[in-house]
């Protein structure tokens, strides 16, 4: 069944995610979540490269719990994770607007549940 077409999302420039986990704490604080419950979670990916070295990537993944902080965005504020991101690597907005901003490699556009 096709659900309502999502309007808003997060553009994540994961090249610059440093794995600081600020987004997770910002989310926990905003919703007073119990430990274990997070709207966003940062994953660490160690990838071996063909030349024998390796590459470290962090990826902030919005989870099932994420509702994109409507109580903040309605007031024109940013979602808690976006606001506090130390690397400023996430952006909230309309999906169409965000899509235009994909001008470099290593970005992901996530369509949120509202």
């Amino acid at each position: 069944m096709i659900k309502k077409k999502p309007k808003y999302g997060l553009l994540i420039d994961y090249e610059y995610c440093t794995g600081c986990h600020t987004c997770e704490l910002a989310c926990a604080q905003e919703y007073k979540h119990q430990p274990g419950v997070r709207g966003i979670k940062v994953f660490e990916v160690e990838q071996k490269l063909p030349n024998g070295s390796a590459y470290l990537t962090y990826f902030p993944f919005p989870t099932e719990v994420c509702i994109l902080c409507p109580h903040l965005t309605k007031k024109g504020l940013e979602p808690a994770c976006v606001k506090h991101c130390m690397a400023a690597c996430m952006k909230y907005g309309r999906i169409e607007d965000l899509a235009v901003e994909i001008k470099k490699p290593r970005m992901v556009l996530w369509s949120g549940k509202q």
């Binding site: 600081c20 986990h21 600020t22 997770e24 704490l25 910002a26 926990a28 604080q29 606001k83 506090h84 991101c85 130390m86 400023a88």
Partner: peptide, 12 residues
Amino acid sequence: QGRLCARCLAMT
């Protein structure tokens, strides 16, 4: 510039 780390966000 508005950013804050995990340790500070755990202050409550």
